[in-house]
Amino acid sequence: MNNVKVLIISNKFDFTTDYVCIELEKRKVKYLRLNRDSFRSCKIEFNINLGELLINVNKKKYIVNKGLSSVYYRAPTYFRETFSKNFSAEDQLYNSQWMSFIRNLTFFEDAKWMNNPVDTYKAENKLLQLKYAKEVGLRIPNTLVTNNNSFKFNNPTVAAKSLDTALFKINDKEAFFYTNIMAVEDVKSYDIGLFPIVIQDNLEPKIDYRVTIAGNKMYSAVISEHGKGVSGDWRRRKNTLKFIDCDLPDQIKKKCFNGCSLSEQRCREEATL
């Protein structure tokens, strides 16, 4: 029986995870990679009373228990695609039930998680994130969430966003709603009564950054197009962009670290309630 110290939840075709496994193997760490698209080849028995998860993968037996030190959850976002493809009943249930199993691995809450589903759930909610950003002293744009066509907003040009990722099927095509920079009057010319959307200040010019914090380390990258920031939604023009390592001002770094500490503190408080 192999005691698992590091559990990796990924996808068989996520080759970036390969590098992590190669390194763990080199360091002789006891790890197990579980792939969301390959659960059919594994058998699990999770005894909740004992706090022991037995996993049988390709005739090798593993045990996950309180000795688990960390979990690396790759690409952890919420599964949204069930609607858009013609999944069989088996596939729909495979997706929903195994995803629930993964979420329930938070049972091992003493392990150090990279992308704990509880945190990810909060991270996927824009309004809560804006609140937290403001709490740690980061400036946030004026933001209004509304389904009222007669809304009032201070600036004549706005960034119109969907509240959640808007991925949907329309006729035979798939559709994705990017951030749209629009005049307020243009927004109002459409019906927005069906569901709320996000109206924000259009930040122009702006520079997009991607910041990742792991423990006490920060990795930041600036998204640049021809040496400048990107106007509007950068995802529309990915082919012309560069992601460049960068260092942020100390004050901003401190606020980002404070944001993570605040999040950890909240989790601890919630756990003790």
């Binding site: 066509n149 119109a160 798939e174 990017y178 749209n180 010319s189 459409y190």
Partner: peptide, 16 residues
């Protein structure tokens, strides 16, 4: 009034 903003302005693509 035009149709829903999100539906109308979304980027549509073939499912590849």
């Amino acid at each position: 009034m035009k149709e829903n903003l999100v539906i109308h302005q979304a980027f549509k693509y073939e499912v590849g």
